[in-house]
Design a protein around this nucleic acid. Structure first.
Lengths: 333, 333
DNA sequence: CTGAAAGCGCTAACAT
DNA sequence: ATGTTAGCGCTTTCAG
């Protein structure tokens, strides 16, 4: 049987309220009483029962995060940031993987809503209506997704993609393929925007392929179509796909970057570790996690005040490594 | 204001106890009453307040998991397994990263202990005494660590390492280097055991180097020493290190596997995705996560019964890919 | 089979 | 500055 506030009160010869105050509002009790109480608290190893506390305060001290795919190293990084910031503010964090499935995601958010003060939803697969409805259930912050009325952390991926295209154009590429990720995904659309705009501006012709799964396999799958299109560079939706592209290209004995250039997006740790370090766009994933919690905390504090819908936009940056170079004429099978 | 059990009771014209029973012990209420109640429950979208429930039942419905480094893709996989199994059993899961720091880890476990029914501790950095003490705070299951009295999920890494050595020996290697991970880590010791035994048995001479950080950088750092030792194969503590070894070797223009063979451990996804797919030992990470929860659940059900200390041992397997080949004389700088 | 009532451990008025 | 008291929302005896 764990020690309760009563045990502490008895042994410190004070009332339970004094114990409660000594812990949650120390300046409301006289210094020596406080010391005596805290002494006993330490001695007994007392820790308040969070359930009881939550029942009355209405706060759980818990935050939640829902990600689409923990297998994508981008998300563990976000998790890291979320947890770090949450811990600083005395919160714990629930975690869930939706497996990129909208139905699962909705279910998970509903379940979480009951036991957290707020939830961070990453790269949601849900449509606007559903998401809007869910956002009424609990305080919500979106990552890599925008929705009127809901605060979100965005990464400027349009700018990132634009930088990729400009880099490729500067290298002399005129025909590039884009391997689409999930077409309905907000971030794919956003990336495409930056892509098209920059392609148009720099005069490179863009061959849009896909959609493909945003995975290693998905990327590998897109290669043949890209090669058939006679492009000199392949722009992948994300790093995982780019890694798949690289592998398939190696299988086909197409030299990278001599015959064809390849770019990724996200700058996952392995982008730098692989045989031929990947040119990609770096995303401040951990920072995004921290920012999301920050937004959550702000909402929580402002409880009843007018809820604006702040959008935190984080910068992205092109990282040029070893998979891009000037073109050497169209690479065909 | 969320809907409470009273709202349901009122609208269904029954007492709160009936509502409670209709939900948690359906067979205790007459079918038609139950239907009426559940109807209202659905209509109102009622969900019991977990804090209130937990206060009285003593169960939180939450599980926790502590990992040393989410940046190592092995652990997201374990998380995935934990979460999947937890969800099947109606539990939520708290997650924490200790950053490989013993003090942080202890603190995290203490905090979690209050709000979960049980906790899965992965690759703990804690000493036996501390861990034993913490295990009295809540139900605990260890992953990749053994401790008398505490159930654990182990992966047979000794066998895995033995398989690596045998494979190398069969290829004709006589001098191998082992790049140690954290020496105090239980899993490093276990891996070393299998290593030494097999080395002895197959007559290969082992050069133990390190310890190094179990990361990409750590692996890269170990290469020069290994080369200086004149070995023909480098056995890394884990895949991350092996990837670092590969990168450093590439920098040094030492051909893999022609001049030197390299092996990893864990079979993280990128082991197969990198330029030269890594020969490694596959660890059933996700399965381990599931098994850990299973063990936890068993403990929880047996509450007061004699607690044996079951050890679930999961098999590992050598995966031969492209970084191992017969030796070509000692590779020196 | 259903209802009434007693708390679970804690915090937050309200007194003193 | 400290104590008293009334619940938070729910489950669980105990009656009926």
């Amino acid at each position: 049987m764990p020690v309760t506030i009563r045990d502490v009160a008895r042994q410190a010869r004070v009332s339970v309220s004094t114990v409660s105050r000594a812990i949650s509002a120390p300046d409301l009790v006289r210094a020596d009483t406080r010391e005596r109480v805290l002494e006993v608290v330490r001695g007994l190893g007392y820790q308040p029962n969070p359930a009881a506390r939550s029942l009355i305060t209405g706060r759980t001290g818990n935050l939640g995060i829902v990600v689409p795919d923990l297998g994508n190293p981008f998300f563990p990084s976000v998790l890291l940031g979320v947890q770090a910031r949450a811990r600083e503010s005395g919160n714990s964090v629930f975690f869930c993987d939706s497996g990129q499935d909208a139905v699962t995601e909705e279910e998970l958010i509903r379940t979480m809503a009951r036991q957290v003060d707020g939830v961070v939803v990453c790269a949601s697969a849900l449509d606007d209506e559903t998401l809007a409805e869910l956002s009424t259930l609990t305080t919500m912050v979106l990552v890599n997704r925008a929705l009127p009325g809901v605060p979100s952390v965005l990464m400027d991926s349009a700018a990132g993609m634009a930088a990729v295209v400009e880099h490729l154009a500067a290298l002399g590429h005129r025909h590039c393929a884009y391997l689409n990720g999930p077409v309905r995904a907000w971030s794919n659309q956003f990336r495409r925007t930056g892509l098209r705009e920059a392609a148009c501006r720099t005069g490179v012709s863009l061959h849009e392929l896909g959609p493909y799964e945003p995975t290693f396999q998905g990327g590998a799958r897109g290669v043949d179509a890209a090669l058939a299109a006679g492009v000199t560079a392949i722009i992948a939706y994300n790093d995982l796909m780019a890694l798949g592209v690289l592998a398939r290209l190696a299988e086909l004995a197409v030299a990278v970057p001599e015959r064809i250039s390849v770019t990724g997006f996200d700058d996952i740790p392995y982008a730098a570790m692989c045989g031929r370090p990947l040119t990609t766009v770096t995303m401040p994933a951990e920072l995004a996690g921290r920012a999301a919690v920050e937004l959550l905390l702000e909402q929580l504090d402002n409880a009843d005040r007018v809820t604006r819908s702040p959008i935190r936009e984080l910068p992205t940056a092109l990282v040029i490594r070893a998979t891009t170079a000037p073109p050497a004429g169209p690479a065909r099978l």
